[in-house]
C-alpha cells in the first residue's frame, strides 16, 4: 500500500507535500518524492491533489498487490478514479462529492 511519484509528470507545485498526514513527501530537484514508501498509510490524499497524474496508488505485494494501480482526476465536484493494469486503463469509477454515500 503506497504511492509512486512520476518525476517526468511532476510540475513541482508542492500541493502533495501539504496533504500527507505523515509528512512523508518532500520536494527534490527533480520533483516531489516520497521519502519512505513503506510509511504510507494509503489515504490517497496526495492523488486527489495532483492535477497532473504524477501520483499512482498501488497495493503492496505483501498484501496481494499486483501491477494494478489507480490515479484520480478531479472535475468540479466529481472525482474520477481511474484504474490501470499492465495492459492499460481498465476502469473508471466516478464519485460525485455532492451526493452522499448510500451505505
Amino acid at each position: 500500500m503506497s504511492i509512486r511519484i512520476d518525476a517526468k509528470k511532476c510540475v513541482r507545485c508542492g500541493k502533495c507535500l501539504d496533504v500527507c498526514p505523515g509528512d512523508l513527501i518532500s520536494m527534490g530537484i527533480d520533483g516531489s518524492r516520497i521519502l519512505r514508501p513503506e510509511d504510507c498509510w494509503g489515504c490517497a490524499s496526495c492523488l486527489k491533489e495532483c492535477a497532473f497524474g504524477a501520483i499512482s496508488f498501488f497495493l503492496g505485494k505483501d498484501i496481494g498487490g499486483d501491477d494494478t494501480y489507480m490515479q484520480v482526476k478531479k472535475d468540479g465536484r466529481c472525482l474520477h478514479w481511474i484504474f490501470y493494469d499492465s495492459s492499460g486503463q481498465v476502469r473508471t469509477i466516478t464519485v460525485d462529492q455532492s451526493s452522499s454515500n448510500k451505505y
Binding site: 500500500m1 490517497a44 497495493l59 496481494g64 494494478t68 489507480m70 451505505y103
Partner: peptide
C-alpha cells in the same frame, strides 16, 4: 457498485483490491 464508491470515500485500497482481482 455503490460499495465500491463508498470505499473510495474512506478506504480506497478496498476498491482497488476488488478491481485488481
Amino acid at each position: 457498485e455503490d460499495l465500491e464508491r463508498a470505499y473510495l470515500n474512506m478506504a480506497p485500497s478496498q476498491t482497488l483490491r476488488w478491481v485488481a482481482q
